[in-house]
Design a binder for these strands. Structure first.
Lengths: 185, 185
DNA sequence: GAGGCTATTATCCAATAGTCGAATCCGGTT
DNA sequence: AACCGGATTCGACTATTGGATAATAGCCTC
């Protein structure tokens, strides 16, 4: 849709759209339509998610629970070139997880069709099914898939899908990174 | 490890172990070793995660930040057959998301080897690599994979991996669907 | 108009994935 | 001891995937 509406002034983007996992779309749109301010509208209000949205290039974040007035103020602010987040959200000290940044960058380099194909890989579809849905030959899809694997630096579609999954809405800040044995007794 | 220590009295399980995504291991262990009380020990303290742990059959949840005394009390309670969660966590109204329950049930039906193979699929490994790591022929792995696909009711490994990913630690309560509304931290 | 990038398709080939049937092993029963 | 159901193992066969190469066409830029 973004491709077909290149003259839009503003984009409202819902995280967790079916068929597009988490921040993938945001990361791609930010690079391929840099002049299109994007506001995340989400039911989530987790500070970690808000921060990640901004890190991925969103111009604003407006929880669905916001009163109309806030929505309006947010839109005005973003159209004025500002970054808008709910009150009380601290954006300092923000740096994107390096692994996540790497994946986002790879996504950015994809062409529109390649991105589309990748999202469909993420639904576990066969090349043949993707070809049918997009109305092109399977050979074309294979070419796209090959290009995607190369750009994402992975060896097969499953790994590509797993990489994309890392941009899902989950709360990395809540996890731990250390690990050690767990044992029983 | 659980398979090799069938006589254990209690299992401490860390969510997000490398190679086992989220609640997968818990779901499987609960069905295949029903008499083994399992306590989740995690750095996370999100009420949603704690609730999901109990829903998946954990006997207790102890945040890593807990003082020793609490840890001890929790262990005693669980060994006495009780369910232990941090103070202030409300467990009422608990029903597992139906899609998630379906996946957990499918996982439960897997044999030890099949489960192991599935977890390795989740790392994007080739059949050949799995075969090597487990010291069996590739044909054997293929057979296991086929069995897994059948039990999980999917058509290919990518779909199987995606299903397992749904049991990752992410906070469904933070996404749309209404209800909850606990902003952590 | 030339050069560069994307998209499309095709063909050929090697590797990987998935299905089927069958042999073997193992624990528990009869 | 014979039997049974299952888990595990494996080889043969087929389908899908991924890589390499090439050709055509459209689009944008210089």
């Amino acid at each position: 849709m973004v491709e077909e509406n290149a003259d839009a002034d503003l984009l409202f983007l819902d995280l967790n759209m079916p068929g597009v996992s988490g921040f993938s779309a945001l990361a791609w749109i930010r690079s391929n339509h840099a002049s299109l301010p994007t506001v995340i509208v989400s039911a989530a209000d987790d500070p970690a998610i808000i921060r990640r949205s901004i890190q991925h290039g969103a111009s604003g974040f407006i929880p669905k629970s916001s009163p109309i007035g806030t929505l309006e103020a947010g839109i005005r602010a973003v159209l004025d070139g500002e970054v808008w987040v709910p009150e009380g959200i601290d954006l300092r000290d923000d740096r994107l997880d390096s692994e996540e940044a790497k994946i986002a960058m790879a996504l950015s380099s994809l062409t529109p069709h390649q991105f589309r194909v990748l999202m469909m890989l993420g639904e576990g579809l066969l090349n043949k099914q993707i070809a049918f849905q997009l109305g092109v030959s399977e050979a074309t899809i294979k070419a796209h898939v090959t290009a995607v694997l190369r750009k994402m630096n992975v060896n097969n579609r499953t790994q590509a899908v797993l990489a994309v999954q890392q941009l899902r809405i989950s709360a990395p800040s809540l996890l731990d990174s250390g690990s050690g044995g767990d044992a029983a007794t």
